[in-house]
């Protein structure tokens, strides 16, 4: 029984080594930028992949594949209770070819301040390389919500991280993963042999053979 438990644990570890749970990888951020103080601001998307990725061993923004963002949608809630759903045309591609500039939103005079905003969109490609050389598969869709860092309305620089969510690990396993794999297979083989012998003995006792 103990042996069976050890085998099961090894099996689970083995399977986990090839089918990691979904994990977020930072790909950039969407921010409320007051670019014309007292007058207007914009929701901008800073894409931190590709040329904007951090340099290994810094894993702050580790995606070295340039992730392109499309199908963008932005829902903004304002202090007067109104909600505006901005279409993708709200954003224009930045000169870096991957980030986006938002259109100005007036905040002077009687204009209400934004209280929160949610960005949605799609990543491509979904097969990415990280700055440690490994590869990952990510979900194509993403969502990020900016909330006030203080008070009830957004302030300049309030942001939300845009995360890419992994699905499975498809890269070359690390040495530890190899060990688990071999150990898992070994345990499985041992358990299978023992299990077959036990089954055979049981059948022999019942005269089936």
């Amino acid at each position: 029984m103990q042996r069976m438990g050890g085998a099961s644990a090894s099996l689970v570890l083995f399977l986990l080594s090839f089918s990691a749970p979904a994990a977020p990888i930072p790909a950039g951020f969407v921010s409320w930028d007051v670019t014309f103080p007292g007058n207007s601001g914009s929701f901008d998307i800073t894409n931190q992949t590709g040329p904007n990725a951090s340099t290994f061993p810094d894993t702050t923004f580790p995606i070295t594949t340039t992730l392109h963002l499309s199908g963008l949608g932005l829902t903004v809630h304002f202090a007067n209770g109104s909600t505006v759903v901005e279409p993708s045309s709200y954003f224009t591609l930045s000169a870096d070819g991957e980030s986006f500039n938002g259109s100005p939103i007036a905040i002077g005079g009687t204009n209400p301040l934004p209280t929160s905003a949610t960005l949605t969109g799609t990543f491509s490609p979904v097969f990415i390389t990280l700055n440690n050389g490994t590869t990952q598969t990510i979900l194509s869709s993403f969502s990020a919500t900016i909330s006030p860092s203080a008070g009830t309305t957004l302030a300049d620089g309030d942001f939300a991280i845009i995360n890419a969510t992994t699905t499975t690990v498809t890269g070359t396993p690390e040495p530890g993963t190899w060990f688990l794999t071999v150990a898992g297979f070994g345990t499985l083989l041992g358990w299978r042999k023992k299990g077959l012998a036990t089954f055979r003995n049981l059948l022999e006792r019942k005269g089936a053979l």
């Binding site: 931190q48 951090s54 870096d96």
Partner: peptide, 25 residues
Amino acid sequence: VKENTWTTPDNGVAGINDVNVSGTG
């Protein structure tokens, strides 16, 4: 510091607009 290739937003009016440099390191 490794600065991003462009500021956010990527343009502005001199003497009027604020822009942001983001980076790592």
